[in-house]
Simulated assay, not measured.
Amino acid sequence: MIDIHCHILPEVDDGPGTIEESLEMAREAVREGIKTIIATPHNKNNKYENSKEKIIANVNTLNSILSKENIPLEILPGQENRIYGEILEDYKKGEILTLSNTKYLFIEFPSASVPRYAERLLYDIQIEGLIPVIVHPERNKELLGNPSILYEMVKNGSLTQVTAASLGGYFGKTIKNFSIQLIEHNLTHFLASDAHNTTSRSFKLNEAYSLVEEKFGLDYYYMFNENSESLLLDDTIIKEIPEPIKRKKVFGIF
Score class of each variant (00 low, 15 high):
140 N>A: 08
186 N>L: 09
175 I>R: 00
177 N>M: 13
188 T>C: 12
178 F>P: 00
171 F>I: 06
144 L>I: 10
119 E>D: 14
186 N>W: 07
173 K>Y: 12
190 F>P: 00
141 K>Y: 15
126 Q>F: 11
129 G>P: 09
153 M>K: 03
161 Q>F: 02
177 N>I: 14
175 I>S: 01
157 G>A: 10
129 G>Q: 10
144 L>W: 08
168 G>C: 13
134 I>W: 01
167 L>C: 05
138 E>A: 09
142 E>W: 03
184 E>C: 11
151 Y>E: 09
171 F>S: 05
125 I>L: 07
135 V>Y: 01
171 F>Q: 02
180 I>N: 04
164 A>Y: 00
164 A>M: 10
162 V>K: 00
132 P>N: 09
148 S>F: 13
163 T>E: 03
172 G>D: 10
127 I>G: 11
178 F>Q: 00
142 E>C: 07
164 A>F: 01
124 D>A: 13
181 Q>E: 14
174 T>S: 13
179 S>Y: 09
146 N>E: 14
181 Q>L: 15
159 L>R: 03
178 F>A: 01
136 H>I: 09
176 K>T: 06
140 N>I: 05
187 L>N: 03
136 H>Y: 08
184 E>G: 07
160 T>L: 08
126 Q>T: 11
182 L>M: 13
141 K>D: 14
165 A>C: 13
153 M>I: 03
143 L>I: 10
165 A>F: 06
142 E>F: 05
